[in-house]
Design a protein around this nucleic acid. Sequence first.
DNA 1: TAGAGTCGCAACCAGAAGGTTGCGAGCATT
DNA 2: AATGCTCGCAACCTTCTGGTTGCGACTCTA
Lengths: 114, 114
Amino acid sequence: MADDVEAVAERVFTAIADPSRRAVLAALAAHGPATVTELADRLPITRQAVAKHLALLTEAGLVAAGPPEGRRVRYGLRSAPMQVAQRFLASLARDWDGRLQALQDHLTREAEDR
Amino acid sequence: MADDVEAVAERVFTAIADPSRRAVLAALAAHGPATVTELADRLPITRQAVAKHLALLTEAGLVAAGPPEGRRVRYGLRSAPMQVAQRFLASLARDWDGRLQALQDHLTREAEDR
DNA sequence: TAGAGTCGCAACCAGAAGGTTGCGAGCATT
DNA sequence: AATGCTCGCAACCTTCTGGTTGCGACTCTA
């Protein structure tokens, strides 16, 4: 299903890297679940543009379609993938700092040898 | 200077969303600071492609050019922006959970009224 | 001083991304 | 039955992006 940590993180990052997408997420966070047209009203883009962004956000797991109320479909936030991305970032930073520390030691040793 | 939290986070996210860029960062983390051509040797892309990615990564603050050693230029990792992005993610998730909790309460109250 | 290696700049190309417009189809309300 | 919504699909356009190739310039060393 290709849902290992890095894959999830990649989708989350590409998702929230776009300003329009962040605007969609912000609108959902501010006013609660909403339909496509409601979001299109609040945002400066077309309904179809919103729909495309919602598709991508759904793919990333950040958003999910609620139970269909007649013909209307409401989308809501899902914070689970964010925590995965967060952990990914944390482990990355940890690796870097470890490497940087090792490099620092290495340079120190080199300087002492000289 | 446009270096508020959201701007930094956006650059970091777009930076690490790309697989080639993550590969560059991984190479730097694994073998320590390196020059453009060294990185191009380890990766399946051209030197110029690496150079472009390094420019973007530098712009994002994730990488920095070390002191020039003659003509050679070594690039190293900087983890500071990662922590900014991490905090950004954390605050986002917190906002969402708060909103979701509020919505949950709202629905519960509505159900009880009925 | 003549190579060999490294770097930066510019042009170019194909494909992906963000966005719009234009439909046709399903539910309502009147 | 007719109007008025909302939704989904498809085509199209423009810009951004990842990547390559082709130089010219600089540094080091034999």
